[in-house]
């Protein structure tokens, strides 16, 4: 790898520049997919994955410090739990209409509009929080695993 001299600081200038240009767009695209989940293909899971990818992208290009300054591990874990609790809370709020996960909005809006479909966009947001933060955490945990004793680093040949 050409970036081996400055391994802590990430990849080469080309990668960094392109990342700087694209990462915002990736994040924006993820949010778009997420918010339009109820009117077009997409939704919470797909949106969450793309949002997580934008953070993973930063981490690959700039190294872990920069990525953690945007979204630390503790914050990701917090977001993940919050997403799950938000999702359950939406389900419980359905009891106001008489049933678990009842779509309790009386005015569900007009079809093909952004503000429509009642609780489904809210569920999508909760799911994307859970999925995005969860995937980021999985990636961090798998990549940054420290080898303590025994075994050798798998990256040094096998």
């Amino acid at each position: 790898m050409s970036g081996s001299k400055r391994q802590e600081k990430g990849m080469t200038l080309i990668v960094k520049t392109i990342t700087r240009l694209t990462v915002g767009l990736i994040l924006l695209y993820g949010i778009y997919i997420l918010l339009h989940g109820h009117v077009s293909p997409g939704g919470g899971f797909a949106g969450g994955v793309i949002i997580a990818l934008s953070f993973i992208h930063i981490m690959l290009a700039y190294g872990k410090e920069t990525a953690f300054s945007k979204l630390s591990k503790a914050k990701a874990s917090l977001l993940e739990s919050l997403g799950a609790i938000l999702f359950i809370a939406i389900g419980i709020l359905g009891f106001t209409g008489g049933y678990f996960f009842f779509n309790f909005f009386t005015d569900k809006g007009e079809a093909f509009r952004l503000f429509s479909a009642g609780i489904i966009p809210l569920c999508n947001i909760a799911i994307s929080m859970k999925v995005g933060a969860g995937l980021f955490t999985i990636f961090v945990i798998l990549v940054l695993l420290k080898f303590k004793t025994g075994g050798k680093d798998p990256r040094q040949g096998s």
Partner: peptide, 20 residues
């Protein structure tokens, strides 16, 4: 009949609250 949902809601909510 709402009792039925409790068996799923309660452990799930408690699990994530615990994490929080």
């Amino acid at each position: 009949s709402h009792l039925v949902t409790l068996f799923v809601i309660l452990p799930l909510a408690a699990a994530f609250l615990n994490l929080l």
